[in-house]
Every structure is written in C-alpha cells, then in structure tokens.
Simulated scan of single mutants.
Amino acid sequence: MENAALLIAIIQNAIDGIITIDERGKIESINPSACLLFGYAPEEAIGKNVSILMPPPDKEQHDEYLSRYQQTGRAHIIGVGREVVGQKKDGTLFPFRLGISEVQYSGRKIYTGFIHDLTREKEAEDKLKEYAAHLEELVTERTKSLNATVEKLQLTKEELSLSLEKEKELGLLKSRFVSIASHEFRTPLTSVQLSASLIEKYAEQFNSPNIVKHVGKIKGAVGNLTSILNDFLSLEKLESGKEEPTYHEFNLVQFAETITEEMQGLAKQNQNIIYQHTGTQSLVSLDHNLLKNCIVNLINNAIKYSGENSFIGFTTEINKQECIITISDNGIGIPEADQKHLFEAFFRAHNTGTIPGTGLGLNIVARYTSLMNEKIDFKSEVNKGTLFIITFQMP
C-alpha cells in the first residue's frame, strides 16, 4: 500500500503529462500536468476515447490503429519520443513529444503515454529559424551592397587612373609651356631692357624728365615681368621635383655684397640697401643658386613694399652653430590676420593694394629653405615694417 501511494504521488506531481488508456483507447487516468496541457478536468477526460486529445486526421488514424490492433494483435501507437500534435479543449493545437509504453496489469494490457510539452522549444526553434532567415537575408543584402561598392570602387579606380593620366599629361604640357614661355619671353624682355637702357643713355643730352620717367616705367615693367617668369619657372621645377639642392663651399660675404650691388640698381629713389656681416668666418657650404633666389626674393619684396627715402637692412652672421641671414624693412608690414597664410602659394596680404606681385615669392623661399633642411621665420607689424630670418645649421 505504501509503494502504491508513493507511485500515485509521483504521477500526480510529475512535470510531464501522464495518461493511461485501455485496449479500446479509453482514458483510465490523467495526471494534473496532462489536464493543464489539454485544458480538461479529470472527470471530462476519464472514460472518453483518447482521440479527443488529437486533431484530424490523427483522430481517425488512431481509431484505425485500434481496429488494426484488434485484428492483428499488434499495436501501431507504441513508440518512443515521437513528436506529435495535440488538441486542447478549446481547439488550440500544440506540439509535444510522446512516449508510449505497454504495461501488463491484472491480466490486461494498459498503455501509458508520457507527454512532454514542446511549445516553448518550438517557439524558440521558430524564432531561431526566423532569425537565421533574417540573417541570411541581411547577409544577402550586405553582399549585394558590398558587390555594388566594389563595382563603384573599381569604376572610381578606373576613373581616377584615367584622371591621373590626364593630370600627368596636363602636368607635362604645363611644364613644357612654362619652360618654353620662360625662355621665349626672356629674349624679347632682355631686348626691351637693353633698348630702354640705350634710350636712357642717348636721351641724357636732352635732359628730358619725361623721357627719364617713361624709360623708368619700361625698365620697371620689364623687371616685374622677369620676376613673374622667374617665379613661375621656379614653382614648376619645385612641383615637378626637378629642384634638388647642390652644396658647395663659397664666400658668403662676397656673395652677399654682389647681391646687394645688383639689387641696389632696382631700388626706388633714395632707397638704400645696407649690408653688414657679423663674425670672423665667411665660408659656408650651401646651395648657391637656391640661397640667392631666397635673398633676392626677400630684398625685392622689401623694395616693393617700402617707400622712397628708406633703408633696407641685409645682414649675415656666422657662428659655430648657425648661419643667420636677415632682411628687414620699414614698409607697410603684414596684417596679423594674414600672417598665418603668408607662405601659401598665390596668397597676398590685404594691404598690398595695387603693388604688383604673384604671391609666389615667399612660397618659393619657404620651399627652397625646406629643401635645404633649414627654416625661415619673420616678424611684422603694419606700417612699421617686416623682418625675415633664415637660419642654417653649421656642419
């Protein structure tokens, strides 16, 4: 009796549903879990055919199984772990795993069904399938997008390659044009400069201020055009990578004195370029041509942006550590807002007005000093002047 009570307690408290049926398919017992699953009270299910718990067509097939069993003595409903669909009292269908065992009891056969609800597992499985399908769809979309991006990148690459080829061709054409233009313009400009000088010489006996004035204008215009050509030719060489520094030793003082003499001839009326050297050493190892271009550009700017009757300072200093070159003036100065753009190509300060210039000179100077691994700095104040400092490290 104690064992029977224990067995009943186990069945009543089992998590899974447990149902027993007789050989005719009628329900003999149903535990609380099975009642909860199917929605029947025990008295509503006991004595009824188990087919009430099955949806069509399983209901009809179950009767056929019973009939076949009665004829052959073999039961087709016996199985272990089959997944089937049950029908609740309200008609709702749900999946479950069914295990059936045959039990001999009191000289007759009883079939016990063990029912494990699969609703949550199936929902999780459906969600997983849905997620997998969504993921597959997403991967497909991303793959299409990626393929489209790759095609665009390929097209862009081809367009860029074509563009680079065209740019290269344009660069070569520009280089040729600048080179040809520079040389072709130099010849007539030299002739104009020479002719102007001869006119000035032959006109001295006439002592005509008008002739001197207009000859001066011609020489000034020729000088401006020559300066522009030099700037564009220098820029072209820098951008094409043709300009490389070549170092050799020379006398900096003699070099600076020659430049001072040349630039004094271009100065305005009563403008004086004052050169001074500090230190006992005079030899340096630098690129003679690049350095001359830098100094000429800076002195030329000092001449342009300073008035008549003014002084332009030009100093060189050599010590054990550095070679320092300075060019100073007391001209119009550079507005503070413009100073950060001073070394940009084609940039001109807002206070230059009608003073001619390309805005390339300081850019070229900065790039030349960079090529020689040196630095350029400046100080400036509007209407008080500008000081440029080029510093070279001594070996």
Rank of each mutant, 00 (worst) to 15 (best):
L362R: 06
A5G: 00
R97M: 14
E165P: 02
Q393W: 02
G265P: 00
E243D: 09
N251W: 05
P356H: 01
H62E: 12
L291T: 09
K59V: 07
L118D: 03
F388V: 03
L98H: 08
K237C: 03
I332T: 12
I52F: 12
E137A: 12
L371C: 08
E44T: 07
G357C: 06
N309P: 06
Y247E: 06
G333C: 09
V212P: 00
N272L: 14
N251R: 03
S161H: 11
Y305S: 00
K48N: 12
A203K: 00
S370G: 11
E141K: 15
L7R: 12
Q276W: 01
S285H: 07
G86L: 05
E184D: 10
K48V: 04
F346Q: 13
L37A: 10
I8L: 10
T72Q: 04
G333L: 09
I318P: 03
G241P: 09
L362M: 05
P56N: 08
K122G: 00
I19E: 06
Q271E: 03
A45I: 02
P55H: 06
T315H: 10
G73C: 09
L164E: 15
V85R: 10
Q61C: 03
I46H: 06
G216N: 10
I390H: 06
L146Q: 13
G47R: 02
C323A: 13
I273T: 02
Y247C: 05
S182V: 05
F392P: 00
L37S: 04
A34F: 02
L118H: 05
P188M: 06
R367H: 14
G81T: 07
S328D: 09
F38K: 07
E239Y: 11
L118S: 03
K217N: 01
Q339N: 03
D16V: 07
T72C: 06
A75L: 08
L153P: 02
K89R: 11
F392T: 00
A5L: 15
K144I: 07
Q71T: 11
T391Y: 04
K213L: 00
I100D: 02
E204Q: 14
C323Y: 02
I324Q: 05
S179M: 02
S29N: 12
K304M: 09
I389M: 12
C294P: 04
P356C: 01
D126H: 08
S195V: 01
S67M: 11
Q393C: 01
L342C: 08
I77C: 10
H248K: 10
N210M: 04
L98A: 13
N147K: 14
Q264I: 06
N13H: 15
